[in-house]
Design a protein around this nucleic acid. Sequence first.
DNA 1: AGCATACGTAAGTTACTACTTACGGTAAGT
DNA 2: ACTTACCGTAAGTAGTAACTTACGTATGCT
Lengths: 96, 96
Amino acid sequence: MLDALGDATRRSIFESLKSGPRSVGELAEGLPVSRPAVSQHLRVLKEAGLVSDSRDGTRRLYRIEPDGLLRVRDYFDGFWSEALERFREAARKETG
Amino acid sequence: MLDALGDATRRSIFESLKSGPRSVGELAEGLPVSRPAVSQHLRVLKEAGLVSDSRDGTRRLYRIEPDGLLRVRDYFDGFWSEALERFREAARKETG
DNA sequence: AGCATACGTAAGTTACTACTTACGGTAAGT
DNA sequence: ACTTACCGTAAGTAGTAACTTACGTATGCT
């Protein structure tokens, strides 16, 4: 899941979808890579559960999958909770 | 920053640090890679601002950098806020 | 001073992955 | 039915990055 967001181009695509559903062509327009490349990135994002797609005539709309995004957020929230706790422990030991 | 967490081995290291500071050798013990490999990963994490280090005799302790972790969490929090808003908009249009 | 421990760095190799072009397939328009 | 638009997939390539071994360095102990 984080592997999918480890690529800069894929993050750009993902961020573009933040403002709403987009077609593959639209996504490819704002990027310095070819349309097939965008398709491949979208597949990775889809397999990671971060986006979903639906037909719209000849086009194909991609949108952010809320469940996937929530899972990522929860992952880091858990990290944050635990790390913050350790951080406070350390601070408490220092100050006495 | 997310590039740094895009690697599975690096995520393992980062997760190991969740429970507190660890030396390079300790981190390498629980991983299927060599100790120098761990050092290289730690450098990437450090340059990303996700960990910090300090001397401890001949050893070197690495710990999670709260600021970096907070930045990652905020990034996804912003994503979540905006995506959730779009999601509600879409739901409102559907249901009427 | 000499040795051991713990670690970072350099150099080189291998594997992966992001990319391109070419092709095939589906839906809408005329 | 033919054409056009839009997209996914296949195949091949180039660049990168993760890894190993070998080596150099700093700290602590005797």
